[in-house]
Design a protein around this nucleic acid. Structure first.
Lengths: 202, 202, 202, 202
DNA sequence: CATGAATGAGGCTTCATTCAT
DNA sequence: TATGAATGAAGCCTCATTCAT
């Protein structure tokens, strides 16, 4: 009995933690990490300030968890899309398409990852780097595969992977910050073609 | 009757202001804007805290001036390199080459512009956006010219310009944060080829 | 589920605010506004510096509230005394008697209003002027009534009202600053006679 | 020779000191002691900030000297007017007339003495008290003389003297702060009559 | 578990005073 | 003597975190 109780309790706890994270995401999407106070997050989550500290040891733990979660979500999304295809070029496309789809669906996520969180502090930048690297690694793997197959003449697959990812990043960031380009999905096509040409396809 | 030679004095003041900016650059390069206290800047510049306020009205004025200065420096550098060539493809190359050269020479500048300053606050992001847009605008002009000449099949020149700039940005950022790629100059060649192919050349 | 009895809690908060105001009154009575730091007020109130800001938005808000409160208290006191009599001469006497009684009872109040707060800044002087004017207005109304009844020959009722109030003010101030006259109640009689003669009675 | 030199130098020094005091008077008339910075005084006096300290040991020394000077000026003025008459009632009138004349002529003086300086700090209030007491003492002496001559029935001559002075003070202050009464000279007549009646004359 | 009042360290900024020229 | 840049103590205020209820 006690065991089941504990499970329920844990579940409830996790649910509340989720509530707080959701609230925090909303707030962080509009204001930078430093500008955002625990109080404002608590208000959005409809809890008392002190309650926050029952679920997170401090502000940094929260943002870390948020970003980690986003990272997992993003990665999961990308990987599941990649599994649907086999060709490396298609995998590249699937990765970025997954990214963009997710960011369109969860704009706050994109805002936090690409706009608000960079520059918080060194520890944080390291974490972001890690995330980006994961994506770049995937891309690089595709390129290396293509290379092996002789389909990518590519000089330096790491740099090419960075170029690939960076071009998407730039467009998405601009879309988030200024609404330019207006139609991100359409821009995706342009971007894809650009990069495929860059990779030597066509 | 001290300070009779007003010119020399003015010069000295400007030099001191420059010293402070230099010190601040160093500090900002290693720590985020928010983490950086006026005190730490003053210490690096070997002045008293109060002295800082003789040269800048506040912290924000300082970072604004720093970023503005960097922007001017960057733009001047890019434009002067572009003037040396006439072909649009060469201009594209010249722009990015200028960027990379400057960033290699002034690493703190790159760190501040690309890593530390983003995410400070909304007002600041707007300023950075402006800077990036200037660079993208230049790139887009080149592309539009190429388009007119029928040398760039390009779908959307704005998106393409973003892709172009973004690919460089990503590589430079990674180099700053992790030292990857080790040889930025060499990576530049790879990047350039990648993008020229992306633009349809070759 | 703490703080369930909202009423009690609110009451407690109000009480605390009152405590702070009381402490501040004590401090302000002995030191000028400018000399008084938030820290010293907090110490007197036995709270942390930050706690002060839970109750007042800043130092100016505090002194404003203090003076406003005192003003209300003084006016209430005066008006209630005036209501007990009908004759205008008696009203004049009632006003000043109320003043003096209150000031004897709450010496810190008198010190703040008459000694410490003047000279803080222009905005503040305006507020004090307003308070004094209220008292002078009341006095003037009495005089105008007497004039109508032909009992006050009075040339200029405004100036006479000022003279009336000013004579009390001077004596009270001296009493506060130097303990001269020692017996303020007795001085009140002298003052009252002086002014009644001045107003033409007797 | 050296002696004469020294004299000249001293004179020059005194002249400059006078310049600074004049400038300071102007500034203090418009802003409270605390609001007024040494820098602003120096600017008004067209000297450098550091120069100020060649003539005054610190800010407090300046305001002390200013107030002392004003005190001397006021007293001299009053005494010289009093000497022109012999009757005690006339002396009372002469005192106040001298005051008002001087204040009309040197409004900044009145503003400083009556509005800006009170409330600066305890040491300062003591000095102001001293000044006022001197005036009250003179008044009291007149009253005591009248008393001896049987012309003033007066109960307490000190309180009466305070009343006398306080009535003028109140009117002058209002005139300074709000321009009420508009015509101070005319108000003087009213005030004088009021007080003479108060003292039992007529 | 929840609450929100309380804490106090730490940042920014001002300005009287000093000092090198 | 004159200058004005430089100093640094001190004050205000914020906010992440703690704690009594």
């Amino acid at each position: 009995m006690a065991y089941r109780q504990t499970n329920k309790v844990k579940e409830k706890l996790e649910r509340k933690k989720g509530d707080i994270i959701r609230a925090a995401r909303e707030v962080f999407a509009e204001n930078s990490y430093q500008e955002t106070s625990i109080k404002s997050i608590a208000q959005k989550a409809k809890i008392a300030t002190g309650t926050f500290y029952l679920y997170f040891s401090n502000k940094e733990a929260l943002i870390n968890m948020i970003v980690d979660e986003m990272f997992q979500e993003l990665l999961k999304c990308i990987k599941s899309e990649r599994e649907k295809v086999t060709d490396s070029f298609e995998k590249l496309q699937a990765s970025m398409e997954a990214c963009i789809r997710l960011f369109i669906k969860e704009k706050s996520m994109a805002k936090i990852l690409l706009i608000q969180v960079p520059g918080v502090n060194n520890a944080f930048n390291a974490k972001l780097t890690e995330i980006e690297n994961e994506l770049i690694k995937l891309t690089k793997e595709d390129l290396d595969e293509l290379k092996e197959e002789g389909r990518f003449p590519g000089e330096d697959s790491l740099v090419s992977a960075m170029a690939f990812v960076g071009s998407f990043r730039q467009v998405i960031t601009s879309w988030l910050r200024e609404g330019q380009p207006e139609d991100l999905e359409k821009a995706f096509d342009t971007l894809m073609k650009y990069n495929l040409r860059g990779l030597g396809k066509l």
